[in-house]
Protein backbone atom coordinates (compact mmCIF):
# COMPACT_ATOMS: atom_id res chain seq x y z
CA UNK A 1 0.00 0.00 0.00
CA UNK A 2 1.13 3.52 -0.64
CA UNK A 3 2.62 5.55 2.17
CA UNK A 4 0.17 8.38 1.69
CA UNK A 5 -3.31 7.84 0.34
CA UNK A 6 -5.66 10.75 -0.21
CA UNK A 7 -9.06 10.11 -1.70
CA UNK A 8 -11.75 12.56 -2.62
CA UNK A 9 -10.95 15.11 0.08
CA UNK A 10 -13.50 17.88 0.40
CA UNK A 11 -13.18 20.90 2.66
CA UNK A 12 -15.34 24.04 2.71
CA UNK A 13 -14.74 27.23 4.66
CA UNK A 14 -17.13 30.00 5.56
CA UNK A 15 -15.61 33.44 5.33
CA UNK A 16 -17.20 36.65 6.57
CA UNK A 17 -17.07 39.67 4.31
CA UNK A 18 -16.77 43.27 5.30
CA UNK A 19 -17.65 46.42 3.47
CA UNK A 20 -14.96 49.07 3.17
CA UNK A 21 -15.00 52.45 4.86
CA UNK A 22 -16.47 53.85 8.06
CA UNK A 23 -20.08 53.17 7.07
CA UNK A 24 -19.14 49.63 6.17
CA UNK A 25 -17.56 49.15 9.57
CA UNK A 26 -20.67 50.47 11.30
CA UNK A 27 -22.93 48.27 9.16
CA UNK A 28 -20.73 45.30 10.04
CA UNK A 29 -21.69 45.82 13.68
CA UNK A 30 -25.22 44.72 12.91
CA UNK A 31 -25.12 42.46 9.90
CA UNK A 32 -22.45 40.18 8.51
CA UNK A 33 -22.39 38.44 5.18
CA UNK A 34 -20.74 35.09 4.69
CA UNK A 35 -19.35 33.35 1.70
CA UNK A 36 -18.55 29.67 1.27
CA UNK A 37 -15.24 28.73 -0.28
CA UNK A 38 -14.41 25.26 -1.55
CA UNK A 39 -10.83 24.89 -0.42
CA UNK A 40 -10.67 21.25 -1.44
CA UNK A 41 -13.13 19.93 -3.98
CA UNK A 42 -12.38 16.23 -4.32
CA UNK A 43 -8.63 15.89 -4.09
CA UNK A 44 -7.11 12.43 -4.64
CA UNK A 45 -3.54 11.20 -4.95
CA UNK A 46 -1.21 8.64 -3.49
CA UNK A 47 2.46 8.88 -2.71
CA UNK A 48 5.00 6.08 -2.39
CA UNK A 49 7.80 6.03 0.17
CA UNK A 50 10.81 8.23 -0.64
CA UNK A 51 9.10 10.14 -3.43
CA UNK A 52 9.99 13.79 -3.96
CA UNK A 53 6.75 15.53 -4.76
CA UNK A 54 6.25 19.15 -5.70
CA UNK A 55 2.80 20.52 -4.92
CA UNK A 56 2.08 23.75 -6.71
CA UNK A 57 -0.81 26.05 -7.41
CA UNK A 58 -1.79 29.69 -7.06
CA UNK A 59 -2.54 31.28 -3.69
CA UNK A 60 -5.77 30.02 -2.19
CA UNK A 61 -5.89 26.99 -4.48
CA UNK A 62 -5.90 24.56 -1.55
CA UNK A 63 -2.22 23.73 -1.13
CA UNK A 64 -1.90 24.53 2.54
CA UNK A 65 -5.34 23.12 3.30
CA UNK A 66 -4.13 19.78 1.90
CA UNK A 67 -0.93 20.00 3.92
CA UNK A 68 -2.91 20.81 7.06
CA UNK A 69 -5.15 17.79 6.53
CA UNK A 70 -2.13 15.56 6.01
CA UNK A 71 -0.47 17.02 9.13
CA UNK A 72 -3.49 16.16 11.24
CA UNK A 73 -4.22 19.79 11.98
CA UNK A 74 -7.42 19.93 9.98
CA UNK A 75 -10.26 17.45 9.62
CA UNK A 76 -11.80 17.34 6.12
CA UNK A 77 -15.57 17.50 5.54
CA UNK A 78 -15.42 14.24 3.64
CA UNK A 79 -12.97 11.95 1.92
CA UNK A 80 -10.22 9.65 3.08
CA UNK A 81 -6.66 10.31 4.11
CA UNK A 82 -4.32 7.66 5.41
CA UNK A 83 -0.66 8.14 6.11
CA UNK A 84 1.44 5.14 7.13
CA UNK A 85 -1.88 3.40 7.66
CA UNK A 86 -3.10 6.04 10.13
CA UNK A 87 -5.78 8.65 9.82
CA UNK A 88 -3.83 11.81 10.72
CA UNK A 89 -6.42 13.59 12.84
CA UNK A 90 -7.55 10.50 14.74
CA UNK A 91 -4.35 9.75 16.60
CA UNK A 92 -2.51 13.00 16.32
CA UNK A 93 0.36 12.24 18.71
CA UNK A 94 1.43 9.01 17.01
CA UNK A 95 0.94 10.48 13.58
CA UNK A 96 2.95 13.67 14.00
CA UNK A 97 5.94 11.75 15.35
CA UNK A 98 6.47 10.54 11.81
CA UNK A 99 6.27 14.03 10.38
CA UNK A 100 8.67 16.88 9.95
CA UNK A 101 7.07 20.20 9.05
CA UNK A 102 8.74 23.40 7.90
CA UNK A 103 6.59 26.49 7.42
CA UNK A 104 8.58 29.01 5.41
CA UNK A 105 7.24 32.16 7.01
CA UNK A 106 7.30 31.00 10.60
CA UNK A 107 9.95 29.47 12.73
CA UNK A 108 9.45 26.66 15.18
CA UNK A 109 12.56 27.72 17.08
CA UNK A 110 12.32 29.69 20.32
CA UNK A 111 12.80 33.27 19.27
CA UNK A 112 14.96 34.57 22.10
CA UNK A 113 17.09 31.49 22.67
CA UNK A 114 20.26 30.15 21.10
CA UNK A 115 19.43 27.60 18.40
CA UNK A 116 21.01 24.73 20.30
CA UNK A 117 18.55 25.16 23.17
CA UNK A 118 15.63 24.76 20.79
CA UNK A 119 17.21 21.58 19.44
CA UNK A 120 17.62 20.20 22.95
CA UNK A 121 14.04 21.01 23.82
CA UNK A 122 12.79 19.31 20.67
CA UNK A 123 14.73 16.23 21.68
CA UNK A 124 12.64 16.08 24.84
CA UNK A 125 9.38 16.87 23.09
CA UNK A 126 9.88 14.13 20.51
CA UNK A 127 11.52 11.75 22.99
CA UNK A 128 14.46 11.23 20.63
CA UNK A 129 16.97 8.66 21.92
CA UNK A 130 20.23 10.33 22.92
CA UNK A 131 22.45 8.54 20.36
CA UNK A 132 20.11 9.21 17.46
CA UNK A 133 19.74 12.84 18.50
CA UNK A 134 23.46 13.53 18.70
CA UNK A 135 24.17 11.76 15.42
CA UNK A 136 21.42 13.62 13.58
CA UNK A 137 22.27 16.97 15.08
CA UNK A 138 25.97 16.74 14.31
CA UNK A 139 25.31 15.57 10.78
CA UNK A 140 22.79 18.33 9.99
CA UNK A 141 24.95 21.01 11.57
CA UNK A 142 27.83 20.04 9.37
CA UNK A 143 25.98 19.52 6.12
CA UNK A 144 23.80 22.61 6.47
CA UNK A 145 26.73 24.73 7.62
CA UNK A 146 25.03 26.08 10.74
CA UNK A 147 27.84 25.49 13.20
CA UNK A 148 28.25 29.22 13.78
CA UNK A 149 24.52 29.74 14.35
CA UNK A 150 24.10 27.30 17.22
CA UNK A 151 24.91 29.69 20.05
CA UNK A 152 23.15 32.67 18.52
CA UNK A 153 19.62 33.66 19.59
CA UNK A 154 17.23 32.94 16.74
CA UNK A 155 16.12 36.57 16.43
CA UNK A 156 19.66 37.53 15.40
CA UNK A 157 19.89 35.06 12.51
CA UNK A 158 19.40 35.99 8.88
CA UNK A 159 16.40 34.42 7.18
CA UNK A 160 18.58 31.97 5.27
CA UNK A 161 20.39 30.86 8.41
CA UNK A 162 17.16 30.57 10.30
CA UNK A 163 15.51 28.43 7.65
CA UNK A 164 18.47 26.08 7.56
CA UNK A 165 18.23 25.75 11.35
CA UNK A 166 14.47 25.22 11.04
CA UNK A 167 15.04 22.46 8.52
CA UNK A 168 17.48 20.74 10.87
CA UNK A 169 14.97 21.13 13.72
CA UNK A 170 12.23 19.48 11.67
CA UNK A 171 14.39 16.44 10.94
CA UNK A 172 15.99 15.78 14.33
CA UNK A 173 13.51 13.01 15.07
CA UNK A 174 14.15 11.26 11.72
CA UNK A 175 10.61 11.61 10.38
CA UNK A 176 9.43 9.34 7.58
CA UNK A 177 7.71 12.25 5.83
CA UNK A 178 8.76 15.86 5.45
CA UNK A 179 6.38 18.68 4.56
CA UNK A 180 7.96 21.86 3.29
CA UNK A 181 5.59 24.80 2.93
CA UNK A 182 7.15 27.60 0.87
CA UNK A 183 10.52 26.96 2.49
CA UNK A 184 12.69 29.09 0.22
CA UNK A 185 10.52 32.20 0.18
CA UNK A 186 12.65 35.29 0.67
CA UNK A 187 15.88 33.30 0.98
CA UNK A 188 19.21 34.41 -0.41
CA UNK A 189 20.66 32.47 -3.34
CA UNK A 190 23.39 30.73 -1.35
CA UNK A 191 21.00 29.48 1.31
CA UNK A 192 18.54 28.32 -1.34
CA UNK A 193 21.16 26.18 -3.00
CA UNK A 194 22.35 24.68 0.29
CA UNK A 195 18.75 24.05 1.27
CA UNK A 196 17.83 22.26 -1.95
CA UNK A 197 20.97 20.16 -2.01
CA UNK A 198 20.44 19.08 1.55
CA UNK A 199 16.90 17.95 0.86
CA UNK A 200 17.92 15.91 -2.18
CA UNK A 201 20.75 14.31 -0.31
CA UNK A 202 18.69 13.61 2.77
CA UNK A 203 16.05 11.95 0.63
CA UNK A 204 18.63 9.76 -1.12
CA UNK A 205 20.33 8.68 2.09
CA UNK A 206 17.32 8.16 4.32
CA UNK A 207 14.49 7.56 1.91
CA UNK A 208 12.39 10.28 3.51
CA UNK A 209 9.32 11.24 1.54
CA UNK A 210 9.27 14.97 0.75
CA UNK A 211 6.24 17.04 -0.14
CA UNK A 212 7.10 20.56 -1.16
CA UNK A 213 4.76 23.45 -1.82
CA UNK A 214 6.36 26.43 -3.45
CA UNK A 215 6.00 29.34 -5.80
CA UNK A 216 9.50 28.91 -7.11
CA UNK A 217 9.68 26.63 -10.14
CA UNK A 218 13.42 26.36 -9.60
CA UNK A 219 12.80 24.56 -6.31
CA UNK A 220 10.65 22.06 -8.15
CA UNK A 221 13.12 21.61 -10.94
CA UNK A 222 16.05 20.89 -8.63
CA UNK A 223 14.28 18.82 -6.00
CA UNK A 224 11.21 17.07 -7.35
CA UNK A 225 10.61 14.04 -9.53
CA UNK A 226 6.90 14.44 -9.56
CA UNK A 227 4.64 17.50 -9.67
CA UNK A 228 1.04 17.82 -8.59
CA UNK A 229 -0.80 20.96 -9.65
CA UNK A 230 -3.83 22.15 -7.71
CA UNK A 231 -6.18 24.86 -8.79
CA UNK A 232 -9.54 25.82 -7.25
CA UNK A 233 -9.41 22.86 -4.92
CA UNK A 234 -8.86 20.29 -7.64
CA UNK A 235 -5.75 18.45 -8.82
CA UNK A 236 -5.47 19.40 -12.49
CA UNK A 237 -2.21 17.67 -13.24
CA UNK A 238 -0.14 14.96 -11.57
CA UNK A 239 2.94 13.31 -13.02
CA UNK A 240 6.60 13.57 -13.78
CA UNK A 241 8.00 17.03 -14.32
CA UNK A 242 9.05 16.15 -17.88
CA UNK A 243 5.59 14.89 -18.68
CA UNK A 244 4.09 18.12 -17.45
CA UNK A 245 6.57 19.96 -19.58
CA UNK A 246 5.62 17.95 -22.62
CA UNK A 247 1.95 18.26 -22.00
CA UNK A 248 1.91 22.01 -21.71
CA UNK A 249 5.12 22.68 -23.68
CA UNK A 250 6.32 25.19 -21.18
CA UNK A 251 7.91 28.14 -22.78
CA UNK A 252 10.95 29.44 -21.06
CA UNK A 253 12.16 32.98 -21.05
CA UNK A 254 15.51 34.39 -21.87
CA UNK A 255 15.96 37.94 -20.67
CA UNK A 256 18.69 39.87 -22.45
CA UNK A 257 20.00 43.32 -21.68
CA UNK A 258 21.70 44.95 -24.63
CA UNK A 259 24.54 47.46 -24.63
CA UNK A 260 22.82 50.02 -26.84
CA UNK A 261 19.33 50.61 -28.09
CA UNK A 262 19.94 48.48 -31.19
CA UNK A 263 17.12 46.33 -32.47
CA UNK A 264 17.90 42.81 -31.30
CA UNK A 265 18.37 40.03 -33.74
CA UNK A 266 17.14 36.63 -32.62
CA UNK A 267 17.26 32.97 -33.53
CA UNK A 268 14.46 32.04 -35.94
CA UNK A 269 12.89 29.54 -33.51
CA UNK A 270 12.56 32.00 -30.65
CA UNK A 271 10.05 34.80 -30.27
CA UNK A 272 10.52 38.27 -28.92
CA UNK A 273 7.68 38.76 -26.47
CA UNK A 274 8.58 42.25 -25.40
CA UNK A 275 11.32 44.82 -25.47
CA UNK A 276 11.80 47.85 -23.32
CA UNK A 277 14.80 50.15 -22.88
CA UNK A 278 17.32 47.63 -24.10
CA UNK A 279 15.80 44.82 -22.06
CA UNK A 280 14.46 42.10 -24.32
CA UNK A 281 12.17 39.30 -23.28
CA UNK A 282 12.62 36.24 -25.49
CA UNK A 283 10.36 33.19 -25.30
CA UNK A 284 11.53 29.80 -26.46
CA UNK A 285 10.59 26.14 -26.24
CA UNK A 286 13.47 24.13 -24.76
CA UNK A 287 12.47 21.09 -26.85
CA UNK A 288 12.90 23.03 -30.05
CA UNK A 289 15.96 25.07 -29.23
CA UNK A 290 18.14 24.53 -26.21
CA UNK A 291 19.00 27.34 -23.84
CA UNK A 292 22.75 27.07 -24.57
CA UNK A 293 22.18 27.21 -28.30
CA UNK A 294 19.99 30.23 -27.97
CA UNK A 295 22.37 32.04 -25.62
CA UNK A 296 25.37 31.57 -27.89
CA UNK A 297 23.22 32.66 -30.82
CA UNK A 298 22.06 35.81 -29.04
CA UNK A 299 25.50 36.75 -27.78
CA UNK A 300 27.02 36.27 -31.26
CA UNK A 301 24.48 38.56 -32.88
CA UNK A 302 24.23 41.30 -30.25
CA UNK A 303 26.37 43.21 -27.82
CA UNK A 304 24.98 41.81 -24.57
CA UNK A 305 25.37 43.37 -21.13
CA UNK A 306 23.49 40.74 -19.16
CA UNK A 307 21.59 37.56 -19.89
CA UNK A 308 19.58 35.09 -17.83
CA UNK A 309 17.02 32.32 -18.18
CA UNK A 310 13.73 32.43 -16.29
CA UNK A 311 11.04 29.90 -15.55
CA UNK A 312 7.54 31.15 -16.22
CA UNK A 313 5.56 31.87 -13.04
CA UNK A 314 3.22 29.17 -11.78
CA UNK A 315 0.12 31.16 -12.73
CA UNK A 316 1.19 30.97 -16.37
CA UNK A 317 1.80 27.25 -16.12
CA UNK A 318 -1.69 26.72 -14.80
CA UNK A 319 -3.25 28.86 -17.49
CA UNK A 320 -1.49 26.64 -19.99
CA UNK A 321 -2.74 23.45 -18.40
CA UNK A 322 -6.29 24.76 -18.77
CA UNK A 323 -5.62 25.68 -22.38
CA UNK A 324 -4.31 22.18 -22.96
CA UNK A 325 -7.46 20.66 -21.50
CA UNK A 326 -9.72 22.86 -23.57
CA UNK A 327 -7.97 21.86 -26.76
Amino acid sequence: MSQIVVEDLVKRFRISERDPGMMGAVRGLFRRRYQTVDALDGVSFSIEPSELVGYIGPNGAGKSTTVKVMSGILVPDSGRCEILGRVPWRRRNEHVKELGVVFGQRTQLWWDLPVIESFDLLRDIYRIPRVEYVANRDEFVEVLGIEACLDVPVRQLSLGQRMRCDLAAALLHSPAILFLDEPTIGMDAVSKIAFREFIKRFNEERGTTVILTTHDMDDIEVICDRVMVISDGMIISDGKLEDLRKKVSIERRLVVELEDGAVPAVHPRAVIAGSERGRVDIRFDPDVVSATELISDVTSRNRVRDIFVENPPIEELIARIYEGQGR
Partner: peptide, 13 residues
Protein backbone atom coordinates in the same frame (compact mmCIF):
# COMPACT_ATOMS: atom_id res chain seq x y z
CA UNK B 1 -8.35 58.63 14.97
CA UNK B 2 -10.59 57.59 12.13
CA UNK B 3 -8.57 54.45 11.45
CA UNK B 4 -8.67 53.49 15.12
CA UNK B 5 -12.42 54.01 15.17
CA UNK B 6 -12.95 51.82 12.18
CA UNK B 7 -10.80 49.03 13.51
CA UNK B 8 -12.52 49.19 16.89
CA UNK B 9 -15.94 49.10 15.24
CA UNK B 10 -15.04 45.87 13.46
CA UNK B 11 -14.91 44.07 16.74
CA UNK B 12 -18.46 44.35 17.90
CA UNK B 13 -18.31 41.48 20.36
Amino acid sequence: LSARFRSLLQYRA
